[in-house]
Design a protein around this nucleic acid. Sequence first.
DNA 1: CTCTCGATGCGCT
DNA 2: GCGCATCGAGAGA
Length: 195
Amino acid sequence: MARLSREFYARDTLAVARDLLGQRLVRLLEGERLSGRIVEVEAYVGETDRACHAACGRTARNAVMYGPPGHAYVYFIYGMHHCLNVVTADEDFPAAVLIRALEPVEGLATMRRLRQGRPDRELTSGPAKLCQALAIDRTFNGLDLCADGPLFIEAGPPVDDADVETGPRVGVRGDEAALTAPWRFFVRGNPFVSR
DNA sequence: CTCTCGATGCGCT
DNA sequence: GCGCATCGAGAGA
């Protein structure tokens, strides 16, 4: 399967979020492929989105969101967790899609080890869980997903509109618009969708 | 099953 | 200092 192109990411963020469902996130770890099917994402769109990390303008932390599309934006949260986003839309417009859940496909044994023997259902059913299962940390911040590197997204079988469900984003703070925007996209009925 | 709460590092006000 | 795009343990039902 082919690696997704820069053009895929250089589109409207909500369209990218929708289309990321069904694609394959791949992590190369010591020669092994760890991968999963993307089943849940959330869009964060520009400085007017009060839940977006760029809501207060550009800082050192969110600078990658202002860069070119197709790069990883990885941040550290709650003193112990990492979350993975992919940068979308045009350069200088801060937007990204948070990868919230995967259905594990390759490298299950290694994922179980990295997740300290948690049940398979809990290997990648959350944004910080999947980073732990795929050994993704801050050193991946700014990584080009379109280049020849240890982290990328491959094309997978598309998800039919009938199987896509949307809703408000999980765990966000902000104004009324940020709390109610239906910018969470997930595969209906998939057991690896968070909560 | 549901709910509550503590852990823990760091960027930003 | 404050607050965070979370997780998992523990308690109760």
